[in-house]
Amino acid sequence: MEVSILNWKTADMYNPQLDKDGNLKHLLTIEGLPKKILNQILDTAESFVGVAEREVKKVPLLRGKTVCNLFFENSTRTRTTFEIAAKRLSADVISLNVSTSSQSKGETILDTINNLTAMHADMFVVRHAQSGAAHMIAKHVAPHIHVINAGDGRHAHPTQGLLDVFTIRHYKPDMHNLKVAIVGDILHSRVARSEIHALTTLGVPEIRVIAPKTLLPEQVEKLGVHVYHDVNQGLKDVDVVMMLRLQNERMAGAMLPSSQEFFKTYGLTPEKLALAKPDAIVMHPGPMNRGVEIDSAVADGKQSVILPQVTYGIAVRMAVMSILAGNPS
């Protein structure tokens, strides 16, 4: 299966993320988001971090609004964090696992959306296996409705990209001086793509992708990244190591000899991590395959910020939802 960088392009897609005044109306992809909006989201998220540490972990911003989580593809963690984020904003939340409901009875996506709109939903959080699904929904919804892409096929997963960037900025505030390595299954990762766009926009000077050829999209270097096949070279002196999950369920055909072989060559062990800067942070979007892409000693080690990523993910999603809902049509 050949996947080229061309499949990653969205130039031909309708991009209705910004309204005519340049405010965020939907969040579909990080690609093309101005630096000003990225910073607005990250700064707002900074303010939401403290909310979770209070006696009452709620603010009243989205009181009276209804947020619909539409998951056409399963993802327990992403759905849960969106649900918690919406609830901490005082919204009413409905989570629909559409793969097991009306879709299986033959209803089209747009009919599902129209039905929920008739029930006065204000915001849709959409996860779909098909690239472009959230764009398509955003194009068809009523003007007062906001859409957030919670992952579409291999295309984008903007809130995950944002929370990763938020985590990096939190631990390494001087973004203009960083070396960031993204390691593993870049080919199937919508996170890697979202992240590369965000890091580039925020001025990170050196982004490395480290993977075997079979797990890299063709012409990936056109995104402005440095490509390494040798993990020992790639990890040298980096400030951030971002491990990606080996996406077994997306591996159509044998691209790798075995997951043990992958661990031996690319898995992040304490020895490999020692090549990075001593204060380098280790990240992983989850769920982790321990012993496949990451060693337990690293995942649970003191350089790991994998669990803070989850915590910050809620603050970032609260920021996105509150910025969108505050930009009326």
Partner: peptide
């Protein structure tokens, strides 16, 4: 305190200025 998340004009004005963390 930054009261951005508690303002009663949020739905008219949105979150346009950058909120600072309450501490």
């Amino acid at each position: 305190l930054d009261v951005s998340f508690y303002r009663d004009d949020y739905l008219q004005r949105g979150l346009h200025h950058e909120p600072k963390p309450s501490n």
